Lab assay of single mutants.
Amino acid sequence: GSVVKEKKEKALIEVRPYVEYYNELKALVSKISSSVNDLEEAIVVLREEEKKASEPFKTDIRILLDFLES
């Protein structure tokens, strides 16, 4: 629970300088966080969101995924 939350919060802070739609990304992460149990599940849902998103938000999600998977 809290470790996953920390990882996601740290990821958002780390990617902030590189993303165009930070507030939207943060809102998406919050929405996903409330419906998943762990980081792996969150990553799966983020990948689905990435497929549906259009640029440049798609790239923002990709940047976040790269950080979460590192």
Results as ranks from 00 to 15, higher is better:
16 R>E: 14
58 K>H: 01
3 V>N: 12
11 A>I: 09
68 L>E: 00
62 R>Q: 07
50 E>D: 02
21 Y>D: 11
28 L>Y: 03
18 Y>L: 14
39 L>A: 05
9 E>A: 05
67 F>S: 04
59 T>I: 06
31 K>Y: 12
17 P>E: 11
43 I>L: 11
2 S>H: 08
33 S>P: 05
21 Y>H: 11
55 E>W: 12
10 K>P: 03
41 E>T: 07
40 E>N: 09
22 Y>I: 03
17 P>S: 05
43 I>S: 02
39 L>S: 04
64 L>Y: 14
25 L>M: 01
20 E>M: 15
60 D>Q: 03
25 L>H: 00
39 L>N: 04
68 L>K: 00
30 S>Q: 11
58 K>I: 02
66 D>L: 15
18 Y>S: 08
17 P>D: 14
18 Y>M: 12
66 D>N: 13
29 V>L: 10
61 I>P: 00
24 E>A: 11
48 E>C: 14
45 V>C: 12
32 I>E: 02
57 F>N: 01
27 A>H: 05
22 Y>K: 01
58 K>S: 09
21 Y>V: 02
18 Y>D: 10
49 E>F: 10
7 K>W: 15
34 S>M: 12
36 V>E: 05
3 V>I: 11
66 D>H: 15
27 A>F: 10
48 E>Q: 14
25 L>K: 00
16 R>A: 12
31 K>Q: 08
32 I>N: 03
58 K>P: 00
41 E>H: 07
15 V>H: 01
2 S>L: 07
54 S>Q: 10
6 E>N: 09
39 L>R: 03
63 I>M: 05
17 P>I: 13
32 I>W: 05
36 V>L: 05
35 S>L: 10
39 L>M: 12
10 K>I: 13
65 L>V: 10
39 L>Q: 04
16 R>Q: 12
22 Y>R: 01
34 S>G: 08
57 F>P: 00
48 E>L: 14
41 E>G: 07
41 E>D: 06
4 V>C: 15
26 K>I: 12
1 G>C: 14
61 I>K: 00
58 K>Y: 01
58 K>R: 11
29 V>Q: 01
61 I>C: 02
40 E>A: 09
58 K>D: 01
46 L>A: 01
60 D>L: 15
67 F>R: 06
31 K>H: 07
15 V>A: 06
49 E>W: 06
14 E>C: 15
46 L>M: 06
51 K>T: 08
54 S>P: 09
29 V>T: 03
24 E>P: 00
16 R>F: 14
49 E>H: 08
10 K>W: 14
34 S>V: 08
56 P>I: 03
49 E>G: 02
68 L>M: 08
67 F>C: 04
67 F>N: 07
70 S>D: 10
63 I>F: 07
60 D>S: 07
61 I>A: 00
70 S>P: 10
65 L>N: 02
59 T>H: 13
41 E>Y: 05
34 S>H: 07
11 A>V: 06
68 L>D: 00
69 E>L: 11
46 L>K: 00
9 E>N: 06
66 D>K: 14
39 L>H: 04
50 E>F: 13
41 E>C: 05
32 I>M: 04
2 S>M: 08
55 E>R: 09
52 K>M: 10
29 V>I: 06
42 A>I: 14
24 E>W: 10
8 K>I: 15
65 L>A: 09
68 L>T: 01
52 K>V: 07
35 S>Q: 12
27 A>Y: 07
10 K>Y: 11
51 K>L: 09
70 S>Y: 14
30 S>G: 09
7 K>F: 15
7 K>Y: 14
6 E>L: 04
41 E>K: 05
46 L>I: 05
15 V>K: 03
66 D>W: 15
70 S>R: 10
63 I>L: 06
4 V>T: 08
41 E>Q: 08
34 S>Q: 12
28 L>M: 05
65 L>T: 13
21 Y>P: 01
1 G>N: 11
53 A>H: 11
38 D>F: 07
70 S>G: 11
48 E>W: 14
67 F>Y: 12
33 S>V: 13
36 V>I: 06
15 V>D: 03
32 I>P: 02
51 K>N: 10
59 T>K: 14
49 E>D: 02
63 I>A: 02
36 V>F: 05
59 T>Y: 13
13 I>A: 13
34 S>Y: 13
23 N>Q: 13
69 E>T: 11
20 E>S: 15
47 R>F: 05
68 L>I: 07
44 V>T: 10
6 E>A: 10
27 A>N: 06
62 R>N: 06
65 L>K: 03
6 E>S: 11
28 L>G: 00
60 D>N: 04
1 G>S: 12
60 D>G: 08
52 K>S: 07
11 A>D: 03
16 R>W: 14
63 I>Q: 03
12 L>T: 01
1 G>H: 08
62 R>A: 08
11 A>S: 03
11 A>K: 02
24 E>M: 13
56 P>C: 03
54 S>L: 07
49 E>C: 06
32 I>C: 14
17 P>W: 07
4 V>Q: 07
11 A>G: 03
32 I>V: 09
44 V>G: 10
11 A>P: 02
46 L>F: 05
36 V>M: 04
5 K>L: 13
1 G>M: 02
66 D>A: 14
70 S>H: 11
24 E>T: 08
22 Y>N: 03
11 A>M: 06
5 K>G: 09
34 S>E: 14
61 I>D: 00
34 S>A: 12
23 N>G: 05
51 K>R: 11
69 E>Q: 12
55 E>N: 08
40 E>D: 11
38 D>M: 06
29 V>R: 01
20 E>H: 15
48 E>M: 14
67 F>M: 05
51 K>I: 10
36 V>A: 07
53 A>Q: 07
58 K>L: 02
34 S>R: 08
48 E>G: 11
3 V>R: 06
6 E>Q: 07
4 V>I: 11
40 E>F: 09
43 I>C: 07
65 L>F: 02
2 S>A: 09
23 N>M: 13
23 N>F: 13
2 S>V: 09
43 I>M: 11
6 E>Y: 03
47 R>N: 05
25 L>S: 00
6 E>F: 08
36 V>H: 05
43 I>W: 09
55 E>G: 12
31 K>L: 08
46 L>V: 01
24 E>N: 04
13 I>R: 12
35 S>H: 10
22 Y>W: 14
54 S>R: 10
9 E>L: 13
57 F>D: 00
38 D>Q: 05
44 V>N: 09
41 E>P: 03
47 R>S: 06
20 E>D: 03
35 S>F: 14
36 V>P: 03
32 I>R: 03
68 L>W: 05
69 E>Y: 12
61 I>L: 04
10 K>L: 13
23 N>S: 07
37 N>E: 07
25 L>T: 00
6 E>P: 04
37 N>D: 09
18 Y>A: 08
25 L>D: 00
60 D>V: 13
48 E>F: 14
32 I>H: 03
38 D>E: 07
23 N>R: 07
13 I>S: 11
5 K>Y: 07
53 A>C: 04
20 E>R: 15
42 A>R: 02
12 L>A: 01
19 V>G: 02
38 D>C: 07
42 A>G: 06
8 K>M: 15
19 V>K: 01
27 A>G: 04
27 A>T: 08
41 E>N: 05
62 R>D: 01
61 I>M: 03
25 L>Y: 01
48 E>K: 13
38 D>A: 07
20 E>F: 15
62 R>F: 05
55 E>S: 05
37 N>H: 10
32 I>F: 06
49 E>V: 05
44 V>D: 08
30 S>K: 06
49 E>M: 03
69 E>H: 10
57 F>V: 01
